[in-house]
Design a binder for these strands. Structure first.
Length: 110
DNA sequence: CTCGTGACGGCGA
DNA sequence: ATCGCCGCCACGA
């Protein structure tokens, strides 16, 4: 159910929707692209709560270390589901959420 | 306005 | 390569 979305969150969602299928981007990269290097954590918080009513490929946002769900996401934050979706797009994810060929799958950004 | 929180990230041990 | 400890930032109470 859509709720109020901050300008920051809208910018994040917009950036996330620009990621091509089969490619990934990190929280940090998004923050940097938004002109807020270092706000990676805030990006994660935004994705966790943001909901403008439209679907967004959250699963394409990963941690800088090439792990699904980020560097500190627990096994409960929907990691399984996101990993499943990434595999559906052709990416190979190890049992411990590592993205094989991360450097190659990483999307440089626009 | 201050305080606590967390889908992060970098660096040192 | 792994683990833990801080620092950053936006957000909500």
């Amino acid at each position: 159910m859509p709720g109020p979305v901050t300008a920051f969150a809208r910018a994040v969602l917009r950036r996330v929707r620009a990621i091509p299928p089969g490619r990934v981007t990190t929280y940090g990269d998004i923050a940097a692209d938004l002109g807020r290097p270092g706000a990676a954590r805030a990006v994660g918080a935004a994705l966790r709560t943001a909901d403008d009513g439209r679907p967004a490929p959250y699963h394409r946002v990963v941690g800088a270390d090439g792990r699904v769900g980020g560097a500190s996401a627990g096994e409960d934050a929907g990691v399984r589901e996101r990993a499943r979706r990434l595999r559906a797009e052709g990416l190979r994810i190890t049992s411990d959420a590592r993205i094989l060929g991360f450097a190659n799958a990483r999307w440089p950004g626009r």
